[in-house]
Write a protein that binds this DNA or RNA. Sequence first.
DNA 1: AATGAATGAGAATTCATTCAT
DNA 2: GATGAATGAATTCTCATTCAT
Lengths: 209, 209, 209, 209
Amino acid sequence: MSDKSDQKSGEKRKIILNAALKTFVKRGYPETRVSEIAAEANVAEGTLYNYFQSKEDLLLALFDEKWGGIIDDIRKKISRLDDPNKKLKVMFSLVVRLFKKDRHLAEIFLIDVKQSSIFLNNYTVNRVVEFIDLIETILEEGKKKGIYRKDLDTRVAKMIIFGAAQGILLSRVLSESAAVENKTFKFSLYRAAISLRDIFKSGLVGEKR
Amino acid sequence: MSDKSDQKSGEKRKIILNAALKTFVKRGYPETRVSEIAAEANVAEGTLYNYFQSKEDLLLALFDEKWGGIIDDIRKKISRLDDPNKKLKVMFSLVVRLFKKDRHLAEIFLIDVKQSSIFLNNYTVNRVVEFIDLIETILEEGKKKGIYRKDLDTRVAKMIIFGAAQGILLSRVLSESAAVENKTFKFSLYRAAISLRDIFKSGLVGEKR
Amino acid sequence: MSDKSDQKSGEKRKIILNAALKTFVKRGYPETRVSEIAAEANVAEGTLYNYFQSKEDLLLALFDEKWGGIIDDIRKKISRLDDPNKKLKVMFSLVVRLFKKDRHLAEIFLIDVKQSSIFLNNYTVNRVVEFIDLIETILEEGKKKGIYRKDLDTRVAKMIIFGAAQGILLSRVLSESAAVENKTFKFSLYRAAISLRDIFKSGLVGEKR
Amino acid sequence: MSDKSDQKSGEKRKIILNAALKTFVKRGYPETRVSEIAAEANVAEGTLYNYFQSKEDLLLALFDEKWGGIIDDIRKKISRLDDPNKKLKVMFSLVVRLFKKDRHLAEIFLIDVKQSSIFLNNYTVNRVVEFIDLIETILEEGKKKGIYRKDLDTRVAKMIIFGAAQGILLSRVLSESAAVENKTFKFSLYRAAISLRDIFKSGLVGEKR
DNA sequence: AATGAATGAGAATTCATTCAT
DNA sequence: GATGAATGAATTCTCATTCAT
């Protein structure tokens, strides 16, 4: 409604993709009507099907392209670093920065991995799992270098870290939803990320460091 | 197991509730068909409606009764304790024990808060939020007692902890799914809980202890 | 509208099947709306899907069950006969009798074999082809017994006979349609069958016999 | 072949018409997509609408022009002949020759009369019916001349002959389709035509000739 | 004249809920 | 209380046709 629909041709695919992301995030994949996506993108319903085979294909493309971009970015940025701590920090600050820029991109994090894996099982590459495994790789590296404790179970730890990150984003969503009556709580993604880092660095206790 | 509802008549409500829990966790609320719940419970579809008004009512009852029981239990157990660290530990070991005893009961953890909040928005009481706030209460207490660092953002930390816990359970579910090809990874809930505690106690680095 | 819908349970499948046959014949498979079949059968649209997986499945079931019945009947009746001429005669008089009884059953003959073969290709047994091949078997037998000419190409002849039979039925349909202005032509299936037999017996010329 | 419309500009109409014929025969009118016709003709979908008003108009033009040409040709050729047997022979050998020369032109035989009559009902001139009635005229003539038996029902016989001819062409189509497993059967249009003539001349039995 | 992306009316199908038995 | 067949509103997707370039 507010957007201009007369952008350059070829952009339409992106417009639709973003409209889908926005509505999927707002209402969840199953509750999102194709007509809503079309309305959000300011195109006819049929137009969606000129670019994507089905509603599911739209979700798939979203995961693939959005996550793919993030992951490639992260890989590039951390390849030059040695310190696993730095890698984790860069990894998440990258995600945080992306999330500040593109609100909806962030929330795709919240589409449950379990659910999405249902959809992504068909594909050899599951981008979410790829992201999570990137965490594990870093943790493993840290263990080898003696930076992380020897008994760290990286397979569990990666899920803890990923879950925690999801928790932060959920915190943000809830802080804005009507479900939370406490309106005084102003969420800061930046501060939240700091919290996450601190907790994983030295636990809840927080030594004199 | 397959044909007779071999339990006392009054148990049927519980059977249905557990069947609903199981399928909601497995496939997500919107993707769960009422017929699936009925099949899982070994009753006719119509029978569900003798005990619950609607599919949504089933989810509501689930949250109310299952979470309610867990929360009451936790509250009782931790009320006698002073140390917030102990409280957190007791809180989670209780959940872990529940998980081990009643697989489906504990899986309510995995029905995503965001998902449920979409559906439960109309209701003032959201048991999941109640549980999460219980964590915050403990964290606040710890801050006041000087046990946790002063700058700990409890509103974010509670979500991090909850998200991390979800991550562990998700890890277990995924470890059992065909999606994870690495069959050598035998998940241990016990070890995972230890990991979680250690990480929140002293971070990924781990003290020389 | 005219039928009673309160027939014995279990009959509903047949009611739907017959309604489908009637409407498929009336408007052709692709032009038939599922809603029309439902209306014809006096059931809700959803009810169809309790008995058949899809609209195509309905067509498949029709072919299978209707043709299957005819073919089994024919096989049984002609197995006792020796004379291939008699076999052909019995074969077609059986079809004629059936078609006089069930108008719609007859017209399924007219659903183009080529079209139907598209749908039936998935199945190992294609009933129409089965019927046509039954003709060939009889012709081959006649050749071996020296009744039919040695140079008769049975593979072509079977299609000629089948096509001719279709022609007769088409003749009947057209004789009743508005497309044929000549209303004085009263079609008789019986007379038509005689014509077919005579032509195939001794050609258009018709010897003094 | 693939990119350039390498024929004179005015030919485009014919190219489209032939593409339509080909696809209508292959898949039937209702199952044929306009996009398929366009692809077959190597033009854009929109281009079709510069030459024809609608998909139905395409079918109409097809019948009118293709059948019209065939019928005019036949009329001219048989007007000089006296013997009805000769006329029939010339009629079909003409069709056979057309079939051999222009595969798709002859396939118009296979677009079922019933189908077309549905669409052509509104029109006073139905070319297919015109062709079939031409057969009847010849048969009537033969009866009058005492060549065909007195009791020959020409209204039925014309459909039998037309149906039989369709059967032959269908035989050819099927012999080329994957549906027929018997790969050794090499269809010969010439031999098939001979078979048809022989059968209608002297029946299946065949004189000692 | 040619294009092919955009359109949207219309179709098949799903599934929570009802209700007669 | 239990059943499960019947329901039909609501949804996804198709495809002939249009029209700006």
